[in-house]
Amino acid sequence: SPEVQIAILTEQINNLNEHLRVHKKDHHSRRGLLKMVGKRRRLLAYLRNKDVARYREIVEKLG
């Protein structure tokens, strides 16, 4: 489901952010981070168009 995919991506994004705080010059990982953020944004847009209630619920849960 989109909610699960968004939750997994959010966790991976948070982990990668911590990694990049330590390894500032790791541009390869930064590119992966940007791809993940874009994918999460697309999934959220899809969910917002399909079911606003589910969209609001996941945004509330994940912050």
Rank of each mutant, 00 (worst) to 15 (best):
R41G: 06
L34M: 11
A45V: 08
L9F: 02
R21D: 04
N15H: 12
G63H: 15
N17K: 15
H27W: 08
T10G: 01
K25W: 10
K24I: 09
S1H: 10
N17Q: 13
N14F: 07
Y46H: 10
D51Q: 02
N49C: 14
L43V: 02
K61S: 11
S1L: 07
I8Y: 11
V37W: 09
S1I: 08
N15K: 14
T10M: 08
Q5I: 12
V22P: 03
K25G: 13
P2H: 08
L47M: 04
E18F: 08
K61Y: 08
M36F: 04
L20G: 02
I8L: 11
D51C: 05
L47F: 02
H23P: 02
T10C: 08
E60V: 08
L44K: 00
R40A: 04
I58Y: 04
K24Y: 08
I58H: 00
G32Q: 15
H27R: 08
R31D: 08
E57Q: 08
R56K: 11
V52N: 11
R48V: 03
K35I: 14
P2M: 14
Y55M: 03
L9G: 00
T10I: 12
V59S: 02
A7K: 08
R42P: 00
D26A: 05
Q12W: 12
R30D: 06
L47S: 00
L44E: 00
K50F: 14
A53H: 14
L33F: 06
G38P: 00
R40K: 03
I6Q: 00
N49I: 14
Y55S: 02
V22M: 11
H23R: 04
L43C: 03
V4F: 09
E57V: 06
L34K: 12
N15F: 13
K50V: 15
V37S: 03
L20W: 03
H23L: 03
S1A: 08
D51I: 05
L9P: 00
R56P: 02
E57Y: 04
K61T: 09
K39F: 06
H23T: 04
L44S: 00
E11S: 07
K50D: 05
R41W: 10
I6E: 00
S1C: 14
D51E: 03
G38I: 14
R31N: 08
A45K: 10
A7S: 08
I6Y: 02
L44V: 02
Q5Y: 09
L44M: 05
Q5S: 05
R21Y: 03
V52C: 14
L43E: 01
L34R: 11
V22K: 11
H19T: 04
S1F: 15
L34Y: 09
H19R: 06
M36T: 03
N15Q: 13
D26V: 03
R30K: 08
K50I: 15
K35V: 11
A45S: 08
E57K: 07
K35C: 12
D26K: 10
V52I: 13
H27M: 13
E57T: 05
H27N: 09
S1P: 09
H28L: 10
Q5P: 03
A45M: 10
V52E: 15
V59K: 03
R31M: 11
G38Y: 13
H27C: 11
I8N: 07
G32D: 13
K35Y: 09
Q12Y: 10
L9K: 00
Q12G: 05
I6C: 02
K25I: 07
H19Q: 05
S29T: 08
T10P: 00
K24C: 14
L9M: 05
L9Q: 01
K35S: 09
I58Q: 02
R48A: 07
L62Y: 05
L16N: 01
H27I: 12
L34W: 11
R48S: 03
R56A: 08
L43M: 04
L20D: 02
N49L: 14
P2V: 15
A7F: 14
H23E: 03
V4L: 12
L47P: 00
R40I: 13
V4R: 10
L47Y: 01
V37I: 14
G38C: 15
I13A: 00
D51H: 04
K35G: 06
M36H: 04
L34I: 12
E18R: 10
L16G: 01
K24T: 12
N49K: 15
V22T: 13
E60L: 11
E11P: 01
R40F: 13
I58S: 01
L47Q: 00
R56F: 12
Q5A: 09
A53Y: 06
Y46L: 12
G38S: 12
L62M: 09
L33W: 06
I6D: 00
E18T: 06
E18W: 08
N17M: 15
R21F: 03
G38Q: 13
R30N: 07
G32F: 14
V4N: 09
N14C: 10
G38E: 15
A45R: 10
E57L: 05
L9R: 01
D51P: 00
L33G: 01
V37C: 11
L33E: 01
R31V: 10
I6G: 00
A53S: 11
R41L: 11
Y55G: 02
K50L: 15
M36N: 01
D51M: 03
R40P: 00
G32S: 14
L16D: 01
R48F: 13
I8K: 11
S1W: 15
K24N: 12
I13H: 00
G38A: 14
K50R: 09
L20M: 07
D26W: 03
L62G: 02
K24V: 10
R56G: 05
L47E: 00
H23N: 10
K39Y: 07
L33T: 01
I13M: 01
E18N: 09
R31S: 09
K25D: 14
R54S: 06
T10R: 02
L20V: 04
H28G: 10
N49Y: 09
K25E: 14
L43T: 00
K61G: 07
P2F: 14
L43S: 00
D51F: 03
V52P: 15
L16C: 07
N17P: 01
I6R: 01
V37T: 04
K50T: 15
R30F: 10
N15M: 13
K25R: 11
V59Y: 03
I58D: 00
N15G: 07
L43A: 02
D26Y: 04
M36C: 05
Q5C: 09
K35N: 11
R30P: 04
V59M: 14
I8W: 14
N17D: 05
E18G: 05
H28Q: 12
G63N: 13
H23G: 03
K25Q: 11
L44H: 00
A7G: 07
L44G: 00
E3C: 07
D26T: 05
L44T: 00
I13C: 01
R40S: 02
K50W: 08
K39P: 00
V59W: 05
K25T: 12
H19L: 06
N17I: 15
